[in-house]
Nucleic acid binder design. Structure first.
Lengths: 471, 471
DNA sequence: GGGTATTTGTCCGTATGTATG
DNA sequence: TCATACATACGGACAAATACC
């Protein structure tokens, strides 16, 4: 029994029962009340509208006689199924189909953003969810710490230390629903009066969010080792957003020397900060694991951002910020104005997921799986070695294919599309302020979502698309 | 087996094994590696560090001889339990206890923000969660619509229409993790260059969030019918944030006439908007249900905000925004820069919770429960009728007790504290810009979290605290 | 799983105001 | 002016069905 919010006018000449009648009739005609739906009982509606029951009954009676309602004794009044109304209903549908626009029938979509969800330990997650819901119950549904559950932040700080060399205490960890939200928090913590330097090309999404948040932005070109620190210094920026462990989209792993230069830049002047986005550091195939920039920071200048969206699932919207001590006080003040955005249930489930060792096992497993996909894909693409140059292959879940035969990015994508393969243009990741720069013809090839079999086939199709000389 | 992110310096004079050794020792001393924890096997660590196994073994050997590690043959290396270290560990604890500050042993806490979680249908929620995790699986863990799941938005729009008279289509509904986040989105949609008028007193939290987001703010006094529209017009504001169905903290229900005045104000000039916060409209004990302001809006001037934090549980961080059509285009543009912040699992569970009728049943049940608590509390407090005047008792889950015997707010709270009852000062809700205004001596009494028995006792204690003449 | 309190549509008696003759 | 009929609105009683404990 739903409550109907009808506003009655006792003084109007129109009788009360008729006002009720026409309101409900209108709703049924507009599809707001669906066939089969139950109406409030005459008692409850009369109580909530503060009218007599017979008034409501009169209205219902009328609707029954007109075929809109039917009454089921001892059960309630229900909306009838009326044929003529269905056309009205379907008239509303097209709005929804906006979601399913541009239906190119891709055979394989090499998106660099997807992840492998085939091998997610669904059963474990369900089991943990069940346990969490059984054990904590009432406490779990109460408001929690705005920075996130202490236990989870502790688990994350320990994990970050051991896997990424991040040096932090749980107090420095702040959880949020996704990177976007954390960047908003950062805007609140740092204030908006900053010039933020971003790598060019960079993670466009973060760029847009910064823009939206009112930051001033500047693009600093990257060379083969990452952001060029001299140009960063020249830009006048006081905050630099970098992805040292696996630059997106280029896949550059920043060597130690450049990292130290960055840290030096940050320390040189009061108020400078580095934002280290460590978005897919979990996956790495070659070379030593380079610990996070944050771990080498001696002057409290690095703000570390990580996420579980890549390593677990995009729908688990839990990201984390590790703040330097120098920002903790400001964060405290800014945060008391916000409540935690992360589902507490998800937090607790994730907490157990990490603590019980499932996260490590999952990571190890995914490393193996992505590693195999990586190897297979790379191996098959070797056939194109004269035509494309693969870079960024040491980590992450995508490759960068640069064309050395003069084929333009646009043509490369068109040729792939002919084979029903979707690849992603590098040019998309250029930032607006760096529009003038030259941009090499290259595409991104994500291999996370496809199976090994599919990757092999996708590679074949790419060879067919790009293997011939320039048309 | 965790991965250790040790950064080795092959060129340094310090031998490799010693670098490994001191890193791990450091970790154990700092409590980052806990007693009993297993270290990576010598094989895996040597592989990931790209050093020889004997180098790792040498480091482990050293640690074993110093008592930090123990080796369990054919199983692994484990961190030893060392007595001296516990003191270090506990030395870190006090930081955490910050959460449990100001430990006044309250007997009853009449917080106006709490809700009754005793009667939440945990089993239903668990069952639905289980079904959702079983049915949707892979799809559920993928990234969803940034505005929220279509099905849930559809269910919400239908509910809002029927229960609150809100006129909207699912496209207008945007889900977000809590009101704070939605207000941030609004800032992105509307831009920050606005003067926002808030009721005085108002919901302080929202005030702070607006402030943080960079809005200019002004306070408009309320009379017994809500925000005074003439003063609003005089303030020069172009956005007004109002709570017509149950003003917080005063509990005023805005009569239709005032609502129409507000709508008229909004329509008078291009670019004006009303933000209607309908935070606890679900609970109402007297008088007709007045439909939401939004339903009476003919000029697309009302932005409606609602939440499930009050009606279901604070931990279910799902709130919703209903945007007028005039803002949809701007929202589309702003939103594409953000991802949804709401756990997709929670969204699906809530969707089923609403669709299967559990939400209505729960609301009906809570209405009954709160209604009984409301009646009992009010009845018992009648003994104080000469001393305090109760207002705001027609809706919501808190009352406002105004002192008519000259007792100051401060003293009233102190006297309640003597009886170990926590009540909340009305003065807390005044906004900064309205500091000069006179503020009546009054306190907020929330009755949601206490049982009927407890409420009766709490009322007794309040009578003891306030029943005597002014000391 | 079973008993009870609550809720349900239905039926009916009543009151008030208005129109009709 | 009075009687009658009708429209509108209110609330109590009944038995079946359901929800809750």
């Amino acid at each position: 029994m739903r409550e109907l919010a009808i506003s009655l006018n006792t003084e109007a000449s129109e009788p009360l029962y008729e006002q009720i009648y026409s309101y409900i009739k209108h709703d049924i005609q507009k599809g707001q009340l669906l066939p089969g739906e139950r109406l409030p009982s005459s008692r409850s509606l009369s109580a909530s509208l503060e009218v007599s029951r017979s008034t409501v009954e009169l209205a219902y009676e009328q609707l029954i006689s007109e075929g809109y309602l039917e009454s089921v004794p001892w059960k309630g009044y229900y909306v009838c199924r009326i044929e003529g109304l269905y056309s009205l209903d379907t008239g509303c549908r097209p709005v929804r189909s906006r979601q399913e626009k541009e239906q190119v029938p891709w055979k394989y979509d090499l998106t660099p953003n997807g992840i492998d969800l085939e091998h997610f330990p669904y059963d474990v997650w369900r089991k943990l969810t069940r346990n969490v819901l059984l054990d904590d119950r009432k406490e779990l549904f109460q408001q929690g710490d705005p920075r996130g559950e202490w236990e989870l932040r502790e688990a994350i700080s320990r994990y970050l230390h051991q896997a990424r060399g991040v040096i932090c205490r749980p107090e420095q960890v702040i959880l949020g629903a996704g990177n976007d939200y954390l960047l908003m928090l950062l805007a609140a913590i740092l204030g908006r009066k900053h010039l933020v330097a971003m790598e060019s090309p960079t993670y466009k999404h973060a760029y847009r969010v910064f823009e939206q948040l009112g930051f001033l932005l500047t693009a600093v070109p990257v060379d083969s080792r990452g952001m060029q620190v001299d140009m960063l210094a020249a830009s006048g920026a006081d905050i630099a957003y970098v992805m040292p462990s696996h630059q997106y989209p280029l896949g550059i792993v920043m060597p130690i020397k450049r990292r130290l230069e960055l840290l030096k830049w940050a320390s040189e002047k009061q108020g400078r900060y580095l934002i280290e986005d460590d978005y897919d550091s979990e996956f790495r195939y070659k070379g030593k694991p380079i610990p996070a920039l944050q771990g080498a920071d001696r002057d409290d200048r690095v703000i570390y951002i990580g996420t579980f969206s890549k390593s677990i699932a995009p729908a688990i919207r839990i990201s984390y910020l590790v703040l330097p001590d120098s920002l903790l006080a400001q964060a405290e003040e800014a945060l008391c104005r916000f409540s935690s955005t992360v589902s507490r249930i998800d937090q607790m489930v994730l907490n157990h997921f990490i603590r019980d060792g499932y996260y490590e096992r999952h990571l190890n497993r995914m490393r193996r799986i992505y590693g195999r996909k990586h190897d297979i894909f790379l191996e098959r693409l070797k056939e194109l070695s004269g035509i494309i140059k693969i870079t960024g292959e040491n980590a992450g879940v995508h490759l960068l294919a640069e064309f050395r035969n003069g084929v333009s990015e646009k043509e490369a994508i068109a040729r792939a599309e002919e084979q029903k393969i979707r690849v992603y243009p590098l040019s998309e990741y250029r930032t607006e302020t760096a529009e003038g720069q030259k941009c090499k013809a290259a595409v991104l090839l994500g291999y996370a979502t496809l199976t090994e079999q599919e990757l092999s086939e996708a590679a074949d199709l790419l060879i067919r698309a790009w293997g011939t000389a320039k048309t």
